[in-house]
Amino acid sequence: METVTHSSPFDSFLDRMRNPASLDLVRSIKSFIVSFSYTASNPETDGKRIQEFFQTMEDAIRDHPLWASSSDDETDNALEGLEKYVMTKLHSRTFASTPEDVKIDAEISEKISLLQTFLRPQHLDIPSALQNEAAWLANPPQLHSNLKFIQLYRRQSKLVSEAAYYLTNLVSAKSFIVDLNAKSLSIEESEFMESMEAARLVNRVPQETVTTINKRSIFGKLMDPGPSTPVHVKTQTNVNGGSSGSNYPYMEAEAGELTVGDVERLLSLYKDVVTKYTSLCNTVRHLSVSRTQRHDGLLREPNGTHKDTCSKETEKRS
């Protein structure tokens, strides 16, 4: 039985570009791509140039003999293939191409990461019927650069209708995250600042742990066992006169002092650090939720009405 294969729009576009009859189109495409290397990078200007090129090529493809008998869908597939080819070639020039883009990507990602430790649907007044905890875990990488890339370089004829609606919502969500503060949420400003600071503390722990491990070059030592004598553990005296070096004895050790025999204990200590870090994360999250619940309980009467804290205290005294 003969197998029927369906090529993708991109493969179909490349196949036609290999046809000798497409030589004029190929030259135009390559000339455009090369010309980018001779101009200074400017996202706004680059976006306009690319959009103008796509429009010029669309007219050329529609009038070209290779697509003379093509349907609108076939022509559109060719334009999709053209866009993919051009933007793949120009990706390093057009995606996250400025230090500012890289900086904004990092700031947004960090802010989302901090907010995820304590922010809950009720802080955004989202009704329980519309809450989706799974969606709460998303932190898309390079959100700013991806949205900017689509806005500048996606063929404008495709950014209409439903696609434009979704893109507009994503851009709005990004702007909301960038500007988000206590006034944007149903949360006291002091609690918001407190929770953000606790989140920063939690998020710093893993990086500091990784940095410490790298500095010790533990895995490097496995390649070169060295002497079999265990490292001499340095002990410190705490304020109560007791030993403070027994739980984490390698804090004062140098990389050259470690041996293969120390790996088992280091692994145990590493697991202990991870366990405590996880516990800290859960504690911070639990405290944030508890504060929110206590706050709601203090300000809300059983029938759903609000009453200020001062009034409650007055009632107690009377």
Rank of each mutant, 00 (worst) to 15 (best):
M1Q: 04
M1S: 12
T5D: 07
S8W: 01
P9F: 12
F10A: 15
D11E: 12
R16W: 02
N19T: 10
P20K: 04
A21C: 14
L23S: 06
V26D: 05
F36P: 02
T39V: 08
A40P: 08
S41Y: 05
N42V: 02
T45Y: 12
Q51Y: 00
Q55V: 04
T56Q: 13
M57D: 01
M57C: 01
A60P: 05
I61E: 01
D63A: 05
S70P: 07
D72S: 09
D73Y: 11
T75W: 01
T75F: 04
T75Y: 03
N77Y: 11
N77D: 13
A78Q: 00
L79G: 11
G81Q: 11
L82W: 13
E83L: 08
K89F: 14
L90P: 08
H91S: 00
S92W: 01
R93V: 02
T94Q: 03
A96E: 09
S97M: 07
T98F: 04
E100C: 07
E100V: 10
E100G: 10
D101N: 10
D101I: 00
S113Q: 09
T117P: 10
T117S: 11
P121I: 10
Q122K: 08
H123N: 00
H123C: 00
L130C: 15
N132A: 10
N132T: 02
A135V: 03
L137N: 00
A138M: 02
H144N: 15
S145I: 03
L147K: 10
L152V: 09
Y153N: 00
R155W: 09
Q156Y: 11
Q156W: 14
A163N: 13
N169Q: 08
V171W: 05
A173E: 07
K183C: 07
I187Y: 13
E189P: 09
E189C: 08
S190P: 10
E191V: 13
M193E: 07
M196I: 12
E197I: 04
A198S: 15
L201M: 15
L201V: 15
Q207F: 11
T211A: 15
T211M: 12
I213G: 03
N214L: 12
S217K: 12
F219N: 15
G220Y: 01
G220H: 06
K221F: 06
K221E: 02
S228C: 05
V233T: 10
K234S: 15
Q236N: 09
T237G: 03
T237H: 07
G241E: 06
G242W: 01
N247L: 14
P249G: 10
E254D: 15
A255L: 02
E257G: 02
T259L: 01
E264M: 09
E264V: 04
L266K: 06
L267K: 12
S268G: 15
V274G: 05
V274L: 12
H286N: 03
L287Y: 13
V289H: 00
Q293V: 11
Q293D: 06
R294T: 08
H295A: 09
H295C: 06
D296F: 15
R300D: 05
N303K: 08
G304H: 07
E313G: 04
E315L: 04
E315P: 00
R317W: 08
